[in-house]
């Protein structure tokens, strides 16, 4: 895995999650940022900051991206969501088109 193939997602509290671009592109919003021709600053540095998404939720979202890739390649497991995260996670998912 090369650095160029990863993207860094930064939470409201400044925690960083380095994930595969392929995984990040599960999110339509991030995919647009990374692939649109009008070069976002995000695309050039491979960093996206989400000031509205807290760390716990952002980590859960990254886990979801990877779970989603596994699921697409045939591994049928459940994705566990703690009840107390549900609302914020849905709001973030809506924003990310995930």
């Amino acid at each position: 895995m090369k650095k160029e193939d990863t993207v860094k997602l930064i939470s409201a509290e400044g925690f960083e999650f380095v994930i595969d671009k392929k995984a990040a592109m599960v999110s339509q919003t991030i995919r647009n940022m990374l692939t649109s021709p009008g070069s976002f600053a995000e695309t050039e540095h491979g960093e996206v900051t989400f000031p509205e998404i807290n760390t716990t939720i952002l980590e859960k979202i990254c886990q979801y991206f990877y779970w989603s890739l596994q699921y697409a390649s045939g591994k049928e497991t459940e994705f566990h969501i703690e009840p107390e995260l549900t609302l914020e996670l849905m709001m973030a998912a809506n924003y990310l088109h995930t």
């Binding site: 960083e16 999650f17 595969d20 596994q70």
Partner: peptide, 18 residues
């Protein structure tokens, strides 16, 4: 390569590795 991933953590950074 999607078989599994681990979360490598140091300070405030987490690396997801397939």
């Amino acid at each position: 390569q999607t078989a599994m991933y681990i979360r490598v953590k140091r300070n405030k950074t987490t690396y997801f590795l397939q």
